[in-house]
Simulated scan of single mutants.
Amino acid sequence: MVTRRGFIDGVSVAGAATVFGITPPASATTRAAGAAVTDAELTARDAIRATNVGMRASYAALKSELISRLSPVIVVQNDATGGKFTLIHGGSPQESATPVPELFELAKSVSHVPQGIFSIIAAYLSDKVPNLPNAHRIDPHDLDMVAFEGPGTAGWISPLKEYAATLTTARRRLGEADLPRELEISCGKILDESLTFIRGSVRSGTFDMASFEEFSGRTYPGIRTNMKYAAAAQISGVEGLMRKWRSTIGEEAWQDLYTVVLSIWTTSELNQASIIIRRCMNPAKVATHLIDLPTIEVPRDPIFLALDNLARIVQDRVSAELVFPTDPVVADAFKGKEDLLSVEILHQLGETAGAPAASFSSSSASSACPVRPGRA
């Protein structure tokens, strides 16, 4: 995992400039081209690098020790069933639970059907944005990337038929699932509309963005109903587990609870588990003790990943205030999500945190960005 300390050791300014095709400033070079580096200089530079090696070793040792002492912690692994929750207290896992009722998974499963159909046909769409009400919200380049096959081939027909068989079985057995009547009706509507779209597309041998939007629009009321049931199931399950664990570890320990929620990037903001859990935590510490941690993929050891990152966060918060006691802005950058050099980089670029980036256009590109267009 790349962190703010993940600099590439040993790459010189001049070397990096060569990689990116940038002419380095005179100050970035220390001697005329071709001049040899003396043994004394090499030794001196290695000595300088050694200070960072020593820091990293000490930092890793502190983190390793801290991992085993973090308590209490709840680690949340988001998944299709509403999440797996693990309570760590006294330095070791105490209990893992999947508290969300099955209704959550069932309601979301059917709601995902239009996305399943889209995933099969997307590559075969036209790469031109049609005249749709929401056309201005579709990036033409994004569409061009997704629609890489184009409408000239029929590779979508076979997988779409296979998916239709799956949907047909679900529709036929829907009444036996013992769902609340309103949820059963909404699921039936979504499945019926999906099968109608598939059959029509296969029969005609064609589809387009307009026909898909018309179909998906008809499923939306049912999806909203399913979302209502899924949300209620998750709230009841997670809040029930939080009450139980709060009683288990006691009120005093609960006030200092850390929570680490692991999720993929697309659900890392306003994450469903985080929204519920924050209501159960000490309000004074939610901002610092509730950590939403985006992951690239499902980690092999989610507990270690969560605790390893939490240990970094906790020790950085303390060290930031002690290492940078005279500059609270830099200290905040060090202990937060910002790169340590972010404040200085913004300063040198004449920008401020949170301000929109300078617009990029053909007339301003050369002055706005030192990397010239067309350079790899």
Rank of each mutant, 00 (worst) to 15 (best):
R4S: 12
V13D: 12
A14D: 04
G15V: 05
V19G: 00
S27L: 07
S27E: 15
T29S: 13
A33Q: 14
T38R: 09
A50N: 11
T51A: 09
N52A: 15
V53T: 13
V53Y: 11
R56E: 10
L62F: 11
L62H: 11
E65K: 12
L66V: 06
A80V: 11
P101F: 02
E102G: 12
Q115T: 14
I117H: 01
I120T: 03
D127L: 01
N131S: 14
I138D: 03
T153M: 03
W156V: 00
W156G: 04
Y163L: 10
A170N: 12
S186M: 05
L195F: 01
M209L: 15
S211Y: 02
F212Y: 15
E213G: 01
F215N: 00
T225I: 15
A253N: 10
W265S: 13
T267A: 09
S274H: 08
S274W: 07
I276S: 01
C280A: 14
P283D: 04
L290A: 00
I291L: 13
I296R: 13
Q315S: 11
L322Q: 11
L322M: 12
V323G: 07
P325A: 00
A333Y: 15
A333K: 12
F334W: 09
G336Q: 07
S342G: 11
H347P: 05
G350P: 06
G354D: 04
S363E: 13
S366C: 11
P370E: 08
P370V: 13
A376Q: 10
